[in-house]
């Protein structure tokens, strides 16, 4: 599903964020990505979503090499991905419902079908009663869950989450991890980054540990 082969990422300015990464994630796997702040977790996830391109090496997602991906094919690759961002990237000019609606509008679903799906997604993350609320009025945990709802509404095959429990207390982060586990159970491939080691103890699974941009054995 996701395959890295000798991937290097150097940012303009010369900083080498990732060094010689090679790993593979199979379909339906749930993998954690750990490492200190600045280890390169976000960079790795951005490479998968083709937000950044590798400096060298190859990143292959669903059989497509990110490096040689044509501009026209990029949107269709991203529609297979559910992205949960560290900074949420919610839109504050519309309510929660419309935020979750956006991916479906982009794919051109008809309105009634979309509305059903949006409610199902909001229900899944426990925000059905907040659909009219502006995201700015939501708590940090609620915003995070809204971001998850938007990522899953399109039923992606791969879910990428960048520190989804980053600044939440343990009760909330447990809730969110449970949501992820339920997606794992229906066969979605998940890659979840975290710097919170306690989560790893709670949810056993494969972990990729990054340190200064290199994969720890």
């Amino acid at each position: 599903m996701i395959k890295f082969n000798q991937v290097y990422k150097r940012y303009p300015g010369g900083h080498e964020a990732l060094r010689n990464l090679s790993f593979e994630i199979a379909e339906g796997e749930m993998v954690f990505l750990t490492g200190h702040s600045g280890a390169g977790k976000s960079t790795l996830l951005k490479l998968i979503a083709a937000i950044e391109r590798p400096t060298s090496g190859s990143v292959v997602v669903k059989g497509q090499n990110i490096k040689s991906l044509k501009g026209g094919a990029l949107p269709y690759l991203r529609r297979n991905l559910g992205l949960i961002f560290q900074d949420h990237k919610l839109l504050f000019d519309r309510n929660a419902f419309d935020n979750v609606m956006l991916p479906l509008q982009i794919c051109g679903f008809d309105h009634r079908e979309s509305a059903k799906r949006v409610r199902a997604a909001l229900d899944k993350v426990g925000l059905l009663n907040r659909e009219k609320a502006n995201p700015i009025a939501l708590s940090g945990g609620e915003q995070q869950r809204l971001c998850i709802a938007r990522a899953i509404v399109n039923r992606p095959t791969i879910l990428l989450a960048d520190e989804p429990t980053g600044n939440l207390d343990t009760e909330y982060s447990g809730e969110i991890m449970n949501i992820f586990r339920s997606f794992h159970q229906v066969g979605v491939t998940l890659l979840v980054s975290t710097h919170d080691e306690t989560i790893l103890r709670q949810f056993p699974g494969r972990a990729l540990a990054l340190k200064h941009g290199e994969l720890q054995p």
């Binding site: 949107p75 269709y76 529609r79 992205l83 990237k89 000019d93 956006l102 991916p103 982009i106 399109n154």
Partner: peptide, 16 residues
């Protein structure tokens, strides 16, 4: 700007 950026991230084509 924000809306365009998010739309691109979740798979909007340039045409859209």
């Amino acid at each position: 700007r924000d809306e365009i950026e998010v739309a691109k991230l979740i798979g909007a084509t340039n045409g859209f």
